[in-house]
Design a protein around this nucleic acid. Structure first.
Lengths: 153, 153
DNA sequence: TATAAAGTCTATAGTACTAGTATGCTTTTA
DNA sequence: TAAAAGCATACTAGTACTATAGACTTTATA
């Protein structure tokens, strides 16, 4: 059930872009290089990933000197599910329970297939989390943990 | 987040073995060929899978004429999580949230890594389902659906 | 207006994994 | 003792993963 490196890096990069570096309200713009350094990702690989995300409409970019990538929408309006699906495909463990890209599986009777019933639950559990967690939720949570750790010291 | 064919076939086979074919209380024994026909799986591939499951202690077998495979424990005592892990490895999407086979990931600070927090939730959601669903639960549920469908007609 | 910084796009390559196949072996029962 | 059944291992074709490389385009600014 693993997340590919592509998906992992893409999610990390999006989270990085969602973090308000300074108190400026303008969408944070970051360069590939900056993200790759910070997250320890091969810059060329990251480039590919960000491009995919851009073509999917989740990121915008500005070319030229002083350019970079920034979120296409506010961090509240981008969910992890959207990012995941662009980079790693359907959430469902088997196609026959996928909402977004259903395909029949081989089993004799889908309606009573026990595996399908359970995998449907699994799909829903994953999708529930991913589709109801926005980038803003993630950064909020990070900050909460940071605060908690700081107060403990 | 997909389930491999190996995992899918293995789970299907185990569910098939858990279904009480007749009212006999003795553990149901089935031959590779019977399972492969019923579930439409290449017999040779299935053989490999069942062998793996056997070596993991989830199945027992009887050699020779009239032999076959049967569950090592009662259907109530075998969870889908056990089967899944043998065939597809850890449930966790990233190693750094795996309970069964933890490994550190590259992020600068695991404690406050947003991706890790969310993926931890995902892992728990999946593991909750897989580890709390036994083969008996699956067959029970199948029967419930069958009954429901039959009564609707 | 030249130049360097930055993103765009396509191709390719090594590696590992997937989904099987193939082959020969041993055990058991009729 | 022959046939049925499982045991074990090796092999392979295809695909996906994880990048890497290189040439091109756009933009700011000196």
């Amino acid at each position: 059930m693993r997340l590919s490196k592509r998906g992992e890096y893409g999610l990390r990069a999006m989270i990085a872009l969602a973090e308000p570096a300074d108190k400026s309200a303008t969408p944070q713009m970051m360069q590939i290089k900056a993200i790759s350094l910070r997250e320890q990702i091969s810059p060329k690989f990251l480039e590919q990933i960000l491009l995919t995300l851009k073509n999917a409409g989740l990121l915008h970019s500005k070319m030229g000197v002083g350019g970079g990538y920034y979120l296409a929408r506010s961090a509240k309006e981008i969910t992890l599910g959207q990012i995941f699906r662009v980079l790693d495909g359907p959430v469902a463990p088997v196609k026959c329970v996928s909402h977004m890209s259903y395909e029949p599986c081989g089993c004799p009777d889908e309606a009573t297939c026990g595996l399908r019933l359970v995998m449907g639950d699994v799909r829903n559990a994953i999708a529930d989390i991913l589709d109801n967690t926005s980038l803003a939720d993630v950064t909020k949570r990070q900050n909460a943990v940071r605060k908690k750790l700081a107060s403990k010291k």
